[in-house]
């Protein structure tokens, strides 16, 4: 079965890479580089959330009628991750390496368990329930994400 959610899975990895680089820059107290990487991470994560919230989730909700369940929970977790990103940005502005490290660690684990729930449970549900529109939706997802970041390298 083709996985229409493949672009989102690949994009998770792209966000992971940006996260690792931003965290390393903060650990080295290379603040200008950290700022650049954190901005890119922020944009990538926003891109990802927007794609899920405007393309994938509505399609899933329309196909299954499940509007208050898993997708709603994922939206709430997106909001929480936005706050953690904000916490990292404040720490960066104050050049507080320890606070940045704490917020980064928390974002990473929260983001990973969020991705795990999506990749192991929600995405497979989407792949099954939206199989008929797979090709069309995969293209929409790819178009909505930054070019080159949701394809196999």
């Amino acid at each position: 079965m083709t996985m229409l959610t493949e672009p989102l899975r690949l994009h998770h990895k792209h966000c992971d890479d940006l996260f690792a680089d931003a965290e390393a820059a903060a650990a080295e107290r290379n603040w200008p580089q950290c700022q650049e990487l954190l901005s890119r991470l922020h944009d990538a994560i926003e891109d990802h959330f927007r794609t899920e919230e405007t393309v994938l989730f509505p399609a899933f909700e329309a196909a299954t009628g499940m509007t208050g369940g898993p997708t709603q929970m994922m939206r709430i977790e997106h909001a929480r991750m936005r706050e953690l990103l904000g916490q990292m940005q404040s720490a960066l502005s104050a050049q507080a390496a320890d606070v940045f490290a704490g917020a980064a660690e928390t974002l990473l684990i929260f983001m990973q368990q969020h991705n795990m729930k999506e990749e192991n449970i929600l995405y497979p549900m989407c792949d099954r329930s939206l199989a008929e529109q797979a090709a069309d939706l995969a293209a929409q997802l790819r178009n909505s994400l930054e070019p080159g970041c949701a394809t196999k390298k």
Binding site: T64, G69, P70
Partner: peptide, 8 residues
């Protein structure tokens, strides 16, 4: 039954 992804 569909699994519930809720934190609950």
């Amino acid at each position: 039954m569909q699994p519930n992804l809720s934190f609950e």
